[in-house]
Design a protein around this nucleic acid. Structure first.
Lengths: 130, 130
DNA sequence: CACGTTCTTGACGTTAACGTCAACGTAAAG
DNA sequence: CTTTACGTTGACGTTAACGTCAAGAACGTG
């Protein structure tokens, strides 16, 4: 049986360490409903599912999304989509998200190409100094 | 002489309106040294240069950068790069910025493709409901 | 079973990015 | 010349995202 089995669990310290955050951050995310670890007695026990969600949260954070928004997004992934109205709502949300992400991508491309141009000018300056 | 001449100036209300922010936000950015409009008497007068910088600031904001970091970046663009040491410092900063932006781009690509996959599953669900 | 480690739940502190008054100046318009 | 619109400087309020104690429970180890 492999160590990283589907049934393997982690403590809050292990999770925090592995994802490079503090246990306080992990608990804060739980307060906001972003993750909901199992409890054994009073102690939190993290499963693979929690790791997946935490990964999504941190990616959202790197992208600068507010945690509340992140919650609505990843909840979307888990939402029941039985009824047609639900599905149409979800598809609308997807479109909004995509529009946002694509705007960000454009911003990044623009920033990167400005950076490239600027680096070119700097290297030119450096060359002339030699 | 065209209206949008290089010498045209704007009031704080015009600037705020045009960029879709409040005058309070504009003043806040001035407090942090992100823009520094001319003063006629006590009144702020904005030039094209200020608009350019404000545009950069807002793009940085959309990308989720903290304002302090944004300041160091756009100040970099205006920094004197006469000495070799200065130029090398600037080139280092450029590399850091680029690494950051590329990480963000990867995050966005990942998020977008997950979104695509999810949309596919939703449309499939919808089709089966018909 | 005493001890150090790891966990728990509050509760208050902090920083960033503004919002929201208050109180006042000034300049054109009726 | 008063009103109205737009500008100014404080200064305090607010929200998000945690940091930072404090004070205690639980658990493996010598």
């Amino acid at each position: 049986m492999p160590r990283s089995d589907a049934s393997r669990t982690w403590s809050i310290a292990e999770i925090a360490e592995e994802f490079g955050v503090t246990h306080r951050t992990v608990r804060h995310y739980e307060d906001l409903g972003l993750i909901s670890p199992e409890r054994r007695g009073t102690t939190r026990v993290y499963h693979r599912r929690d790791r997946t969600r935490l990964g999504l949260v941190l990616r959202g954070r790197r992208l600068g999304f507010p945690l509340e928004e992140i919650r609505t997004i990843i909840d979307l992934y888990d939402a029941p989509r039985g009824r047609r109205s639900q599905l149409e709502y979800v598809l609308d949300q997807i479109d909004e998200r995509r529009a946002d992400l694509e705007q960000r991508r454009r911003d990044i491309e623009a920033a990167l190409s400005e950076l490239d141009g600027f680096e070119g000018r700097c290297r030119e300056d450096l060359r002339r100094l030699t």
